[in-house]
Amino acid sequence: MPLDTSTYILAHLRLDGRRWNELRRLQAQMSTQAAADGSSYFEMGNTKIICTVAGPQEQKSGGGGRSQQDKAKIEVEVNFAGFSGMDRKKRARSDKRTSEMQHTIASAFESTLLTHLFPHSTITLNLHILSQDGSLLAACLNAATLALVDAGIPMTDYISATTVATTASYADKEEEADPLLDLNGLEEQELPFLTIASSGGEDRVCSLVLETKVHMARLEPMISVGLDGCSQIRGILDGVIRAHGRKVLEGKVG
């Protein structure tokens, strides 16, 4: 069912009442599971994700003898719960979109984790998607950052990610097109959008995924709004991590 986004031009309010540059409510927790080396729970609006990290641990034998031995291998497993979407649907493990997501996440973290400190080992990220409502990849990246920090794996910087869309999909109404930050599920179906992940302050992009057609002239404002959103999220993640650290210091958390 196509969605009527034309009302946006009237009041400049989106379907859920946000302005163009507003994020949804972000909530995060760290160390949610005692059995894992690191774990986190991340909520971006109605997108809810639990991430657990196992490792760095000894490489499973037989997996790949040819893999690089001088640094840790990052393995990502994304698991869509059957109840996460609108309709109950089980995704096969070999789903193409899922494996692409896994690859994107793994290669994003290869650039920030200091994997050369752990030769001959694996870091396994398990992402359980409990509820999906847009910005899935971005939420996965944010959740993984928190869990990796909880696991104490050294990294140069956080990875924070968000999505950006543009309101009009055609070349007309050029001057009216607004970039929209942090999409929900409905907007994602309707508008061309990209997922951007950045680390190291504002200007380092470590992952950029664009699967829809978008007018070339819109790309630059979209990226700059995305980077701005990433730095907002980075601030929130930083707050969560600092609050957790304070709790650990006070002995409230094991």
């Binding site: 949610t32 005692a34 109605n46 109840f83 409990l130 509820s131």
Partner: peptide, 17 residues
């Protein structure tokens, strides 16, 4: 969970969830 008719989460003290 908002998208399910009913949901629950239980965490045992040995860390299983």
């Amino acid at each position: 969970l908002p998208s399910a008719n009913g949901s629950a989460r239980v965490c045992f003290s040995d860390g299983t969830e």
